[in-house]
């Protein structure tokens, strides 16, 4: 943790956190340097809309199509794989309704798997060593901070965060 330079303020009030984010923006901090963390989604607050855009539903739909295609091919292939036709009950080898059921189930499975994988990747999960974290978040605080600020801007950023309503200002790394 200590290897990363950062300045952050802990806010109790989500409105103040909104102001804090704005203050950092006005200080000229780039979008990808601003870090916000909270123990609740705080829907309706402006900062909750950061990084809001995602193509997850389209990816899920695509995953569903791929899964469904796999399902149909599996249903088809497994019935004709044996060199001699395995007829049962006078049904066609690739029976339409059963194949449709398997196709449907694997469509859904494809969509579910794609959603989970997309979530894990785009939400940057499965990275247990996060560069910046403060366990006070779990006590209801909202963290607004800057990753890798220049040492010169330190006091300016601290002042801006404080005037936005930060309860505590903390720094990590060598600043």
């Amino acid at each position: 943790m200590a290897s990363v330079n950062s300045i952050y303020g802990l806010f109790a009030d989500p409105d103040a956190a909104d102001r804090g984010v704005n203050a950092l923006r006005h200080a000229g901090v780039a979008q990808d340097q601003i870090v916000v963390m909270s123990s609740e989604p705080h829907e309706g607050h402006a900062f909750s809309l950061l990084d809001h855009k995602t193509i997850m539903p389209w990816l899920a739909a695509l995953g569903g199509v791929v899964g469904g295609a796999c399902g149909f091919l599996l249903a088809r292939y497994t019935q004709v794989a044996y060199p001699e036709p395995l007829i049962t009950g006078g049904m066609p080898l690739v029976a339409p309704f059963p194949s449709a059921i398997v196709t449907y189930e694997l469509t859904m499975m494809g969509a579910v798997i794609t959603t989970v994988v997309t979530l894990l990747i785009t939400a940057r999960l499965l990275k247990w060593k996060q560069p910046l974290y403060d366990s006070e978040i779990s006590y209801g605080k909202i963290l607004v901070g800057v990753l890798g600020p220049s040492g010169a801007a330190r006091t300016d950023l601290e002042n801006r965060l404080r005037s936005a309503g930060a309860e505590k200002i903390k720094t990590t790394g060598q600043l």
């Binding site: 044996y82 001699e84 395995l86 007829i87 049962t88 009950g89 006078g90 049904m91 029976a95």
Partner: peptide, 19 residues
């Protein structure tokens, strides 16, 4: 049976129609 109900329900092709 020509269209035997026992055949398609078997999940492992243990019951099937011979040539």
């Amino acid at each position: 049976c020509g269209a035997a109900p026992c055949e398609p329900v078997c999940p492992t092709f243990a019951s099937y129609h011979t040539i």
